[in-house]
């Protein structure tokens, strides 16, 4: 074993309040399952002095349906538990099941995947490599090697759960030492590879809340291998239809093409009130794909991911338009 963690102190609070107090220290870092953080620490991308483990906090555990019919998923729920849960929408379970590998899903948490650090093949590299390349913007340097003339970081939002949560209109409950707030998952993220979410350092993601949903939803993840890999592209769509097959509501989200999941608002607006005919899907695909500008900072390159964006958007829309595909809400 040659890659070891840098030294740190581990503290394991048992209450949220205690944890919130501990993470206000700027040299501290939260750790859930550690499957994202530990590789980064082994590569010396980050070297926190203190790790605040969320593993023993009961408030982060469990999945339940609340009085309002919302599905409430604790941030400390593992991805394996999520994938196996009969309480969560099927699209959420299947998205969870497509993350990383079985072993990682047994350890990684919902909170960890939602807060997954943005990824880039200039930053998620060993220390020697980053020294050889010249440390990038996200790595404490002054240049983004993906777009050297740009003034911000283009690292990729690679969470699979966030696009799905946004499509389902989910929100997050955040707790800090001085109180708590609920924020739409959509508003939680921002398109900047370094400051990719709006959570303050003192806040802990406690729960993912998914409103009751009775439409059709899907998440299509594109990756080279059927396991282990992060998405090259992820398309989440959730829609409701009236009796005449006209769309009454839709959220369409493209993941892994920017530093945040991208809502395809123009396409959503276009689709409302329309039946998903081939022409309609084609136009919606155009509207949703045009703004997408993947960069050359993961496997297969930017051109291919740009090409794939409409392909997967179309497929996602076709899937939710089709009656014979899984109605993701049929089996509670």
């Amino acid at each position: 074993m040659t890659m070891r963690l840098p030294p740190f102190d581990l503290v394991t609070p048992t209450t949220l309040q205690e944890a919130a107090g501990l993470i206000s220290d700027p040299t501290a870092s939260i750790v859930g399952g550690g499957t994202d953080l530990f590789p980064k620490m082994k590569r010396r991308q980050t070297t926190p002095v203190t790790l605040v483990s969320l593993a023993e906090i009961d408030a982060l555990k469990g999945i339940r349906i609340d009085d309002e019919g919302r599905c409430v998923i604790g941030a400390g729920v593992t991805l394996a538990e999520l994938a196996d849960s009969p309480l969560v929408p099927a699209v959420v379970a299947s998205a969870a099941d497509a993350i990383a590998s079985p072993q990682i899903r047994n350890t990684a948490t919902v909170g960890g995947n939602l807060c997954l650090d943005t990824r880039c093949n200039y930053i998620d590299m060993p220390e020697l490599w980053r020294e050889a390349s010249g440390h990038c913007l996200k790595d404490g340097g002054d240049t983004c090697w993906v777009a050297p003339r740009s003034d911000h970081c283009w690292a990729i939002s690679s969470t699979d759960l966030a696009p799905v949560a946004i499509a389902l209109g989910g929100s997050l409950r955040l707790v800090a030492a001085d109180g708590e707030r609920i924020i739409d998952v959509d508003d939680f993220f921002q398109n900047d590879g370094i400051d990719y979410h709006t959570k303050s350092p003192g806040e802990i993601v406690v729960e993912l809340l998914l409103p009751a949903f009775t439409g059709r939803a899907t998440y299509l993840k594109h990756r080279r291998r059927g396991s282990i890999d992060f998405p090259l592209l992820g398309v989440a769509a959730a829609a409701t239809f009236d009796d005449a097959a006209r769309c009454t509501g839709i959220r369409l989200v493209v993941g892994a093409v920017a530093s945040a999941p991208l809502r395809a608002i123009a396409a959503e607006e276009f689709l409302i009130g329309r039946e998903f005919t081939d022409d309609v899907i084609e136009e919606a695909t155009r509207l949703a794909s045009n703004p997408v500008r993947p960069q050359d900072n993961t496997d297969t390159g930017s051109r291919y991911r740009k090409w794939m964006t409409p392909v997967f958007i179309t497929r996602a829309l076709q899937e939710i338009a089709s009656d014979d595909t899984t109605n993701q809400e049929e089996e509670p």
Binding site: N121, D124, A132, S133, R225, G226, I228
Partner: peptide
Amino acid sequence: LFEEQAFRDGLHRGPSLLDYKIPTSLE
């Protein structure tokens, strides 16, 4: 179908088993 020891200038494009993709049981 998957593997290439590829470089960008003198730098390996991905010296890891995540970036250098060897097939899993599914492939």
